[in-house]
Design a protein around this nucleic acid. Structure first.
Length: 287
DNA sequence: AAGAGGCCCTGATAGC
DNA sequence: TGCTATCAGGGCCTCT
């Protein structure tokens, strides 16, 4: 599900609700996420105070007042849900796994605060929770990732140098987190469409102008998606259950066989597979 | 070092 | 109706 914009939406809505609050209780219903949640996890989080909620790439980060962290990744199908105490009785000793508005299955983790509760749902269990003791370990955890597309480090010099002797196609690099971190399968196709670059084009053959376009449109697409509240293609919602609107603006993703939306282009959108991931492009105006 | 391929997991949908 | 096959927004691992 979630690429950088969706995680950003979750971060923003979550921050408003839980900043400065103390964790009263953590309940784990299923420890078998992509990383096994250790038995000590509940104790580690209990009584921690949220100093802020941040994000790096597709990772959500709960920052605690004692300078420790909880890293949350939503994988392919993870969602975060908010339950208000007002809607319920018996808050202190019961779980809210069965609250109205929540999916019936796959509610794996619940974090309770004094007046509300957040619940992590993830059918495929590709997501994870990880407690991180200090800043150094946090930085270390992200050390293998490339710059975020919205950061100044993702610039022409960096891209040109990275692409030297890289024979792989450009689309694979856009979703390769070692090159740039935060772009996923949906936005990669959208970025290349706006850049008018064929997704199969070899990275080392891109000229300066094309690299500039990729950098520029990466920012445009992601910022626009954030502004629209993210994309809700399957089940993405912000934590209050509101869906995003960016999927209405997809130019190519999931638009196989439809006409190209570029003015005066008579092409049709094609779907191909690159490294087993679906890829959409116009074979007329993306060369 | 770079690139190809496979695997983790459940659910929705298409086709027979 | 009910079966099977395929695909889904991610990331990590191994092998060559």
């Amino acid at each position: 599900m979630p690429e950088l914009p969706e995680v950003e939406i979750v971060k923003q809505s979550l921050a408003k609700k839980i900043k400065y609050k103390k964790i009263k209780k953590v309940i784990i219903k299923n420890r078998n996420l992509r990383l096994k949640i250790p038995l000590k996890f509940e104790k580690l989080l209990k009584n921690k105070i949220i100093s802020k909620v941040t994000r790096f790439s597709k990772y959500l980060i709960l920052n605690f007042s004692d300078k420790s962290f909880c890293l949350i990744h939503l994988g392919m199908s993870g969602t975060v849900h908010l339950i208000n105490k007002n809607n319920h009785n018996n808050f202190t000793n019961t779980s809210f796994y069965n609250s109205p508005g929540l999916p019936l299955k796959h509610n794996h983790v619940e974090i309770q605060f004094h007046d509300l509760s957040i619940i992590y749902n993830d059918p495929r269990r590709f997501g994870f929770f990880k407690f991180i003791e200090n800043q150094k370990d946090l930085i270390n955890r992200f050390s293998h990732l490339g710059p975020e597309p919205l950061s100044k480090k993702f610039n022409l010099k960096y891209v040109l140098k990275y692409f030297l002797n890289k024979r792989k196609d450009i689309k694979s690099f856009l979703i390769d987190q070692k090159f740039v971190s935060g772009i996923g399968n949906i936005y990669a196709s959208e970025i290349l469409f706006l850049s008018k670059i064929n997704p199969k084009k070899c990275a080392m053959k891109l000229n300066q102008k094309e690299c500039r376009k990729i950098i520029y449109f990466s920012r445009v697409v992601l910022n626009n998606a954030i502004k629209k509240g993210g994309s809700s293609i399957r089940d993405f919602r912000n934590i209050s259950g509101k869906s995003g609107n960016f999927q209405k603006e997809f130019k190519v993703y999931q638009r196989e066989n439809l006409n190209c939306s570029k003015m005066k282009c008579t092409g049709k959108i094609k779907k191909i597979f690159i490294s087993n991931r679906s890829t959409f492009f116009c074979n007329t105006c993306q060369n």
